[in-house]
Amino acid sequence: MKINFPLLWAEVGVRYEITNTVLNPLIENLNALNKTLPHYDKLFKTTDYDLFFIISATQEYKDLVKGPLASSKRKVVNFSIFIPYKTFSCYKQQMFYVLDTLAEGMIFVFNKYKTDPLGIKEVFETLKTLIAKDPERYQKWLKDLED
């Protein structure tokens, strides 16, 4: 199973500065955990599928997680994680809030499917430590190497 955050969706007037500098190591380290959801392993008859978490920023409080939306044909499972909008005085505080909310949403999904979320929180905490040491680095977008 491959975890990804393919889409950042925000309502008008809502904005979080989530860069690929934050998302790339997050995706890489989450996938290094080699997690799967047995329910979808069985449904798709494989562990080769995508687990997508759509990051959604919202003005009003909604459920933390919506989904799943699954496609057997494409072997993909989509969940949306809703991050209630708040303003912050610095990038580090904003990213800590975003990352904590994403971790909570992912752990909720793994628990819902009775799958041990061990390691997920640690991946987020490690990234938060790196951001705390050099927030300016993580605030910048890196050009895609594949272009």
Rank of each mutant, 00 (worst) to 15 (best):
F79L: 09
K92G: 01
T115V: 07
I54R: 03
I54S: 02
Y61V: 13
V14H: 01
D134S: 12
T21S: 15
L8T: 01
R15F: 12
E28R: 13
N31I: 13
E11H: 10
Y16C: 02
K143I: 04
T19Y: 01
L69G: 03
F88Y: 13
F110M: 10
L51G: 03
N111A: 09
V12F: 06
L30Y: 01
A57D: 06
E122Q: 10
K121C: 06
D147K: 15
P25C: 13
Y61M: 14
N78A: 01
D147L: 14
N34E: 11
F53K: 07
T126H: 06
N34K: 14
K42R: 13
I120H: 01
M95V: 14
Y61K: 15
P25Q: 03
S71W: 05
Q94A: 15
K75A: 05
T58H: 05
G105R: 08
D134T: 02
S71L: 08
K35I: 10
G119N: 04
N29W: 08
Q139V: 07
D147W: 08
I55H: 02
I120F: 00
K133L: 15
D116L: 06
H39T: 15
F108I: 00
N24W: 06
N34D: 10
K92N: 12
L37T: 15
I131V: 15
K114P: 00
I27C: 06
S80A: 10
T115Q: 03
K75H: 05
K42C: 00
N24G: 06
T36R: 09
N20I: 15
K66A: 04
F96G: 11
